[in-house]
């Protein structure tokens, strides 16, 4: 039994290889882009947009409002990054209803990649917003003594981000696989529904945490905001 879709190699040429993770990711990218392109090809500025445009507007404006609620003053600057995090993770979870599909987020490589992106994005946004000195100053707050703890916090939360998503997604797919071998037909349906819910929750948690980290870095309050929902954000399958 494979723990990760990384192990399913579809094509390899030297160091280059195409495994199931990358293939499913490309499939998701194609799906999301095609869907977005199909809907936004005929956008209307009329007071009554089409059904699909309405849905996408709801999603985009919902994400934008959520980013604003977290404390970022200009949500549209962060919408592409945070919104794509949410959409990618959510789409990866929703596609689990397709037989034979393995979510790329159940690969630790993918979640590490996403967490690394957040890890890089936080200082990028922080420096862009406050300048290099201002951003580095935030590591010395409230006192210089906190500097190592702030650095450890920065690293550990990136690790937690990656492992949390990986654990939830991998365990969801694993449980369904195990249950299919020991339980009759109906029970895995409930587990799949629960997995969908877990996936959506994880997508929300991942993107919100990324937004919170960015908000902490871009605001003058310091690297660790008090409103961070991290302790309460663990899902049911969180190891």
């Amino acid at each position: 039994m494979r723990l990760s879709p990384d192990q399913l190699i579809l094509w390899q040429h030297g160091a280059l290889k195409l495994n199931a993770t990358i293939a499913f990711t490309w499939g998701l990218m194609l799906l999301l882009t095609t869907a977005a392109r199909l809907v936004t090809r005929r956008l209307s500025a009329q007071p009554q947009p089409s059904r699909w445009q309405n849905l996408l507007e709801l999603v985009v404006s919902g994400i934008e409002r959520q980013i604003g609620d977290i404390g970022l003053r200009e949500p549209r600057k962060y919408l592409a990054f945070v919104g794509t995090l949410f959409l990618f993770v959510a789409a990866a979870s929703l596609c689990t209803v397709v037989p034979g599909y393995v979510p790329p987020t159940s690969s630790l490589s993918t979640t590490v990649a996403l967490a690394l992106c957040v890890f890089v994005a936080v200082p990028v946004y922080g420096i862009a917003e406050r300048g290099l000195a201002g951003y580095l100053q935030s590591y010395l707050e409230p006192t210089v003594i906190m500097l190592p703890f702030n650095i450890i916090s920065e690293l550990s939360r990136t690790l937690a981000l990656a492992v949390r998503l990986f654990g939830n997604m991998m365990s969801g797919a694993m449980i369904i696989g195990i249950l299919l071998t020991i339980a009759p037909f109906l029970f895995p349906i409930f587990m799949t529904a629960l997995g969908l819910l877990t996936g959506m929750v994880q997508a929300y948690i991942f993107s919100v945490l990324a937004a919170v980290y960015i908000a902490a870095a871009t605001s003058a309050g310091g690297p660790a905001p008090a409103a961070a929902p991290a302790p309460a954000s663990r899902g049911g399958h969180d190891p």
Binding site: A15, I22, F88, S107, S109, V112, A113, C117
Partner: peptide, 17 residues
Amino acid sequence: LVDWFTVVAQALNFLVL
């Protein structure tokens, strides 16, 4: 569990997405 080539590829994929 972590395949660094995949990590890099996924990071690039994500940025493209």
